[in-house]
Design a protein around this nucleic acid. Sequence first.
DNA 1: GTCGTAGTACGTCGCCTGTCAAACTACGAG
DNA 2: CTCGTAGTTTGACAGGCGACGTACTACGAC
Lengths: 125, 125
Amino acid sequence: MSTQPSTSATAAPSGRTLEHPDRSAIRLEAVLHALSDPMRLRVVRALASHGSEMACSDVELDVSKSTCTHHFRVLREAGVISQIYRGTSKMNGLRRADLDMIFPGLLDSVLAAAEGEERRLGTAR
Amino acid sequence: MSTQPSTSATAAPSGRTLEHPDRSAIRLEAVLHALSDPMRLRVVRALASHGSEMACSDVELDVSKSTCTHHFRVLREAGVISQIYRGTSKMNGLRRADLDMIFPGLLDSVLAAAEGEERRLGTAR
DNA sequence: GTCGTAGTACGTCGCCTGTCAAACTACGAG
DNA sequence: CTCGTAGTTTGACAGGCGACGTACTACGAC
C-alpha cells in the first residue's frame, strides 16, 4: 500500500523517498521469508560483508533489472535493508542495528549459517 | 546415521517409516522457508517449549487435518523436525541437535525472536 | 537542451503453496 | 471382527511469488 513518494521533503539527497517499516513494525515471519530466498540472502550477505551501502547494481545478481527491483523491495518492506536515492543510484544498507535490537543474534546466526553452508557445500559436496 | 528412525535398532514401534533428510542435506533456505510460515513457526515453538515429542494432534492448529499433515511434512522435509509413528499417533520432535550442529544459534535466536515478538505485540500494541 | 544510465511500474506467465473436503489406510480397544 | 481415532492421499481451488519484457521516470554528464 502506497509506495508513492508523495510530497515529502525529508532530507534525502534526492527528491525521491522510500517507505521503510518502523522498527516496531518489523515482523519475524516477514524477515524469515525475505531471507529464505537464495537471491535475497545473497544480497544480504553481500551487504553484510561489504559493511556499508551498496548500489543495487553493485550486487551481482544475474537476473533482469525488474526482478532485482522486486527483491530489493521485498527486503526493504520486510525491514531488512534501508534504501535511499543518491543521484542516479539507490544505495542499500543493512538495518543491522534495528534487527539486532528486536531480534538479537538472529541476523548473525543466519549469516554464519549461510557461510557455513557455503563452506560445507563447497568443500565436501 | 544421524537421527534417522531407519529400520530396526532405534525401533520404530510401528511398521511405517518416514524419510528424513540427512543432517548434511539440511539446507538453510529450506529451514528459513519452513520457519517463515506462522503455522509452522507455532508448531516449532510448541515443540521447543514442550521439550519432548508431541503427537500432531497435540499441537493446536485450527486447520483441517490435511493442512496439518502438509505443514508437518514441510517441517520434516526441511529437516526441522523428526517424526515417527507410535501406535496410532505420529510423534514429532525438534531436531535440535542436528540444527544446532550445522546452524549454531539459529534455532535459539529464532525462538527467542518469536517469543520477543509475541510479547511486543501482546503488551505494547 | 540531448543522451545515457539507474531504477520503477505494469502486465504477464508459470509454478509453488496454503487451504479444504472426501475417501482412504493403519492401528488399538472392545 | 468391528469400531473409532489418527493420520494420509488425492484432487481441487485461490492466491502469491519469482521471473521476464517493455515502457516509463529521474538524474547526471555532455
